[in-house]
Design a protein around this nucleic acid. Structure first.
Length: 423
DNA sequence: TCTGGGGTCCTAGGACCC
DNA sequence: TCTGGGGTCCTAGGACCC
């Protein structure tokens, strides 16, 4: 049976999450900022209407924000992660064949629903998600993932459609694709858009009609697959079980610039701890670790960035082992005389934790380390991340990332639950 | 003063082996 | 004058996504 994809995508997800718990934000322009309140990472429709672009640095639009009384919020990933889970659980009720594609979107396989009115089915999904979670979503339905993305985009931008657009039932696909700019097609980024425009290809319809050999040569197998998808030939499969992770990382810009090795060691130690926690949550272990650091590229002054990749002495998921190697790496590449803006720790060569082989020359008591990590994770789960940490991560953390305008953890912290006042 | 973070896949080129 | 060829593995860099 040919596949049918529905793409369910939350509208302005982070801004919508904030609105669920703060109704005062309804109808107002909202922006959500990245770490250190640096760049705009989410905008409500009203903010988009003011011409605020995605990824714009906050300081550049400060006057505009003030003039239009835009509500400015720091990002609250604890809240968004929890709301995402609620949305996905709701979607699962409709369709157990769910591919969670990102924090705010999922593909559903509708093959079994082909006999039904798909548009009505989509509307029901939409109503239920809104009612159960408070989050508005749009639904795009089509024969391929790429076309479902396009359908979703149209659903989102055309109020008359009621949030759902079914390209399968569309009688005039050519007209629809003719109105989609090539740079808005999923998988076409800035560079490919420039290349295509130079060839006079400016719409999805034109892209659909390009020569196979040409696209294969200029955009590789990825480009050819994309064109096939536009033609309605499904090349990107539905992936219900997420593929095992290839890498895990933690990198962050500092709240204030760092100029001593001691501070850098603290930061790298914290990042190694974070990534170790992620590793254990995924039930994986690492064999390779990379550390990196960099100065502020936007600022005048001497620039330096470097990275070092180490093969870990043993396959491990232990925070202590990872901190040890990360510190060894950072000491090797740290140079005095620079103001550092950012550092990171990346783990690769990941293997399932259960399959780690005991090393003949590993004299550590692995059982003890495992019990220690379980206790560490249990305490931090219960009392909040970082409650229990290694001494190398420091106590002052003056360099730490800041979030000056963060909303409360409404759904995940007892002390921050929203209160409802009875009249 | 002030510019995010975390991922994926593909490709080309070099090293190495037989 | 006068080059071997083919396979595999690894890495760095590019492009893209949310």
């Amino acid at each position: 049976m040919p596949p049918i994809f529905a793409l369910v995508d939350c509208n302005n997800f982070y801004a919508s999450c904030e609105r669920v718990f703060n109704p005062m934000l309804g109808g107002k322009p909202i922006v959500v900022l990245s770490n250190n309140d640096g760049c705009v990472v989410a905008r409500s429709n009203e903010a988009k209407g003011l011409g605020i672009g995605m990824g714009v640095p906050e300081f550049q639009i400060r006057p505009l924000l003030r003039t239009h009384r835009v509500q400015v919020l720091s990002s609250n990933y604890t809240l968004y992660g929890d709301m995402s889970q609620r949305v996905m659980e709701t979607l699962e009720q409709f369709c157990p064949d769910l591919e969670i594609y990102s924090i705010d979107e999922a593909f559903l396989s509708l093959v079994g629903f082909a006999q039904r009115d798909l548009t009505e089915h989509g509307r029901q999904i939409r109503r239920t998600v809104k009612q159960w979670t408070g989050i508005p979503v749009s639904v795009g339905i089509a024969k391929t993932k790429t076309l479902a993305k396009i359908a979703n985009r149209i659903a989102k931008r055309t109020p008359d459609l009621g949030g759902v657009f079914d390209l399968l039932g569309c009688s005039d696909l050519e007209t629809v694709l003719g109105r989609v700019a090539v740079e808005d097609v999923w998988g076409i980024g800035r560079n490919h858009a420039r290349l295509l425009n130079q060839q006079g290809i400016t719409t999805a319809l034109q892209l659909r009609g390009v020569d196979d050999q040409w696209i294969r040569k200029r955009m590789g197998i990825v480009g050819l697959r994309l064109v096939m998808e536009l033609r309605g030939v499904s090349c990107l499969d539905f992936e219900q079980c997420p593929a095992p992770k290839q890498s895990l990382s933690c990198s962050r810009a500092f709240g204030t610039l760092i100029h001593t090795l001691a501070e850098m060691e603290e930061a790298v130690s914290v990042y190694a701890s974070r990534v170790a926690e992620k590793l254990r949550r995924e039930r994986l272990a690492a064999t390779v670790l990379t550390v990196c650091l960099t100065t502020n590229e936007f600022k005048e002054g001497p620039q330096y960035s470097n990275a070092l990749t180490l093969k870990l002495p043993i396959v491990t998921d232990s925070t202590a082992d990872l901190i040890k190697s990360a510190l060894q790496g950072i000491r090797a590449i740290y140079r005095d005389g620079y103001l550092y803006k950012k550092a990171g720790v990346l783990l690769t060569g990941l293997v399932p934790a259960s399959q780690t082989q005991a090393d003949l020359f590993d004299y550590q008591d692995r059982g003890k380390s495992k019990r220690l990590m379980s206790a560490l994770d249990a305490v931090n789960d219960r009392w909040g991340g970082g409650t229990l940490h290694y001494a190398s991560s420091g106590l002052t953390r003056e360099w730490k990332t800041h979030f000056h305008r963060r909303s409360p953890a409404y759904t995940t912290h007892w002390d921050e639950l929203p209160l409802v006042q009875a009249k």
